[in-house]
Write a protein that binds this DNA or RNA. Structure first.
Lengths: 281, 281
DNA sequence: GCGGAGATGGAATAAAAATTCCAATTATTA
DNA sequence: TAATAATTGGAATTTTTATTCCATCTCCGC
């Protein structure tokens, strides 16, 4: 009645379906593997497509889809597809929708509406980081920073919280760093010790604070490799930097949160710490 | 050939479909209004259901669905449904899924993986703020802070970036504030000026920094209303606070970002600024 | 290279779903 | 209040889609 594989115990949610497929990865015959790979790579397509359209895109016959579903224990393709659809239902709504909902809200300028809006914007910003930052540039920047003796942190005004967070986190990770910012105006003296064996992280968003630019320029001219976090490819930091990252923070009523930037900064710090322990050993 | 409404120019994305429906809200006859309301209230259902199942849930006939679609300009129900499906396709995946994907990733402890993990955790944290914070407590805290002459900001170590961000943003909004933290150890002198007509924002996460607790206690005993941002209902800040908010930051490999907290802080600052301009006028 | 089990493609069939159409009902206007 | 137009319900029909079935092919052990 079946092919030696259990029936009737088909996974009812995407998570376990994924595991089931993965653990049988090598047991599937050629075409079924093809379907398995396609299904995990294109879960949206699986949820919305028809058997015919999916089959075409996966370069198999519709009947193969049915067989695939049955081999995992489902009654048929439709049964399997239901799991993929369920997966999409539980997702939270998007930034645009949320902001729009706020706009149409009766008590739109209540404090609660502001909270909702800021959160939606932050969520959107954080989300977009993953798609905007390539892994290669990130890895390279991490290697540069991990090789440095001391990491200088350059930031003013709105970017300052990020630098202070980096200072704290890097310190915890035992990575020597120096915040170039003080109430005494001794920044130049601090930077005088910088050599090409060090590195710097410069953070500045439009409107770019003049002192930050100046500090970045001094360090750059001293041969110190600079990694920049900024908000545009046309930022004045870019030409001064060895590596640079563009973090686009969405705004709510003209205010931009730092959620995405601070998450990025944390990732950078952790990655540098990791790289250090890996190479030092 | 048609009912006086334009055909052929049907909205191709959810956003404009929504607007189209809303602007015709009152032109629809009874059953079509019913469908319109159901469609906007249950977009997921519209995406996944069959004409029959949706019709049943909206208490209309399947044919009414087709008529509804045609009245907006679509060829038929299927055409309309495509827009609802499209809407779901563009969504990013969830935190769990992303972390799971990372776990199964071949190069799991590469720098890129760290970035992905931190971003996923941040995203999850930001998301959970909206559900965790009620609007009433938020509004009350905002009113308290808006009524204050000076807002004292208490934070140390990991929380310090948030306080410095608050100081910057509140300053921009022309809200008088005082960062209780200095390299000179003159915090007590700073706080000596505080009166019950002022207010304070205290920020501390586990492990709670002793100086922050001490400052919050002093202010609280001086009759200054304290609004706390912390990470647990059992935080030592809670008993010292008039209003308190729990921000749960998800962790990645033991590291917690500040994305959610910083977004919350920004919302708080903006809301206080808004409240000020509203009441001052 | 031969036999056989398993896998595959594709047409045939069955099932499900969307759409159309018409009679019945409900609003609208004179 | 009658006449007419608009709307609606529901069955009939058509279209789309999933599934089944079988002939053919492929791979593996001997």
């Amino acid at each position: 009645m079946n092919n030696g594989v259990n029936t009737g115990d088909a996974p009812r949610n995407f998570h376990s379906l994924r595991e089931r497929i993965l653990e049988r990865r090598d047991l599937f015959p050629k075409r079924l593997s093809q379907v398995a790979a396609f299904a995990l790579d294109n879960p949206d397509e699986m949820a919305f497509g028809t058997a015919a359209s999916i089959a075409a895109r996966a370069h198999v016959q519709p009947s193969t889809l049915v067989r695939f579903a049955q081999s995992i224990g489902y009654a048929g393709f439709s049964d399997l597809q239901a799991v993929f659809r369920e997966r999409l239902r539980e997702r939270p709504s998007t930034y645009d929708e949320r902001l729009e909902a706020l706009r149409n809200d009766a008590n739109r300028d209540s404090s609660a509406a502001i909270l909702g809006g800021v959160i939606a914007a932050a969520q959107y910003s954080v989300e977009s980081v993953s798609s905007a930052i390539g892994s290669q540039p990130f890895e390279k920047a991490v290697k540069t920073l991990a090789a440095a003796e001391t990491i200088f942190l350059v930031a003013q005004r709105r970017s300052f919280p990020i630098a202070s967070y980096l200072a704290y986190t890097l310190g915890k990770l035992k990575v020597k760093n120096q915040l170039v910012s003080s109430p005494f105006g001794i920044e130049s003296e601090q930077m005088a010790f910088a050599t090409p064996r060090d590195a710097a992280i410069a953070i500045s968003f439009s409107p770019y604070a003049a002192p930050s630019m100046e500090h970045a320029r001094v360090l750059s001219q001293a041969g110190v490799p600079v990694v920049s976090i900024t908000d545009s490819a046309f930022s004045p930091l870019v030409p001064l930097s060895q590596h640079w990252f563009e973090i686009a923070e969405a705004d709510f009523a003209g205010f931009r949160s730092l959620s995405a930037s601070i998450a990025f900064a944390l990732a950078l710090a952790i990655a540098v710490g990791e790289e250090r322990t890996r190479t030092k050993k």
